[in-house]
Design a protein around this nucleic acid. Structure first.
Lengths: 205, 205
DNA sequence: CGACGGATGGACCGAGGAGTATAATCTGGC
DNA sequence: GCCAGATTATACTCCTCGGTCCATCCGTCG
């Protein structure tokens, strides 16, 4: 049973890399098997009943990774909430830079590819964004004392996510990390406009 | 010659609909032929040397449409520049609502699908965003007197595009136009924070 | 008229995809 | 040692796709 789990995880891991790089539809089972250093397609169908099931597992794995490496930053109890948000945005930029401006966001990509075609994927991607948004909302609520009255945290959270997603896409197309950096800076400034103490709101390069 | 152009346009038109709906890779030549009310694949290859050529033509056609219906708003000489920007954002929201929050942006979708896989597409999509950005930059420069000093118009233009792209994606995934509307409103407010007269910067719902 | 060339139709090809059937191997329990 | 079930491997089916080939059609020009 433990071994079976290992093989299954091994396949998911390989598929996650390939799907992140080439998309879901454009990744074949044979490729996944090859990448996972296994042979035989029957092997695959022993652990998954269909490609769709693998796709769902890949999405779950991508979210797991994102939770560990990304969302964790948003809930670090040792850091001030708005500083955490800044760290998070910087981490997204850094991660994108390390990938050479390629690939973009796995959720955004899957959304563009599958949202209209496959309701199962759409719903799961929606849940991912919902959880991401909830994390930012919690952070913003924690920062309430420093924020102006009447800030709609749900709406602001969605704005932050949307802008980051768009920035990843733009920077991927232009292959210039400076595009992403500029948008990230402006996004921080936008968040700052919701703060009581506007002193920090400046237009630095 | 005129007739050949017609047939070619007819194929491009059909393909533009299908690619917008299902993506490039997931649209087959046979489907395009059927949609264009023609028959025979040789027919297609009489007008296009490859699927790639069709893809480029579709992208060009999408940009043409966008220029007519979207970018035109940004350069209407009868309207104040910043008002034009507001109109444009509203038009994007309206168009997305009319599509029932589906499909998203044809350029953003193609970018997600092809940017890493196919350099030819990447470059062409980059050019599209560049032209879109140039249009917004021109508008912002026209509005210079009303803007604060030191506003980086190129950067602001990219921010606007990125946020709109992200908003389309988020709203497509959630299937809720209110998501798009909220982001669009916040985007307008962000632009307003660059104005000399901050009186207009309020947090209305 | 007849012939020539672009326009049209459809059969066909090789490659590669998802998924299945089944054989071969390995494992643990008796 | 041996059987049963889980695992691993191979071969195969059926389908779709991009692309090619070739037969036919039709308007035009000589």
């Amino acid at each position: 049973m433990g071994i079976m789990s290992d093989r299954r995880k091994q396949i998911i891991e390989a598929a996650t890399v390939l799907v992140g790089r080439q998309g879901y539809q454009n990744t074949s089972i044979d490729e996944v098997i090859r990448e996972a250093k296994l042979c035989g397609k029957g092997h695959f169908y022993h652990y998954f009943k269909s490609k769709e099931e693998l796709g769902f597992a890949v999405l779950a794995r991508q979210f797991e990774r994102f939770t560990e490496r990304g969302l964790a930053i948003l809930s670090d109890p040792m850091v001030e909430p708005l500083e955490r948000l800044t760290h998070f945005i910087d981490a997204v930029v850094k991660s994108h830079a390390e990938r050479g401006c390629a690939e973009g966001c796995p959720f955004g990509n899957l959304a563009a590819e599958m949202a209209d075609e496959h309701e199962g994927f759409r719903k799961r991607i929606e849940a991912v964004f919902e959880r991401w948004s909830a994390q930012i909302q919690a952070l913003l609520r924690e920062a309430r004392p420093q924020l102006e009255d009447g800030v709609d945290v749900a709406r602001l959270a969605r704005f932050i996510i949307a802008t980051l997603e768009g920035a990843l896409m733009m920077s991927r197309v232009t292959r210039e990390i400076s595009v992403m950096e500029g948008i990230a800076e402006d996004l921080k400034r936008f968040v700052a406009t919701h703060m009581r103490d506007r002193a920090l709101v400046s237009r630095s390069s």
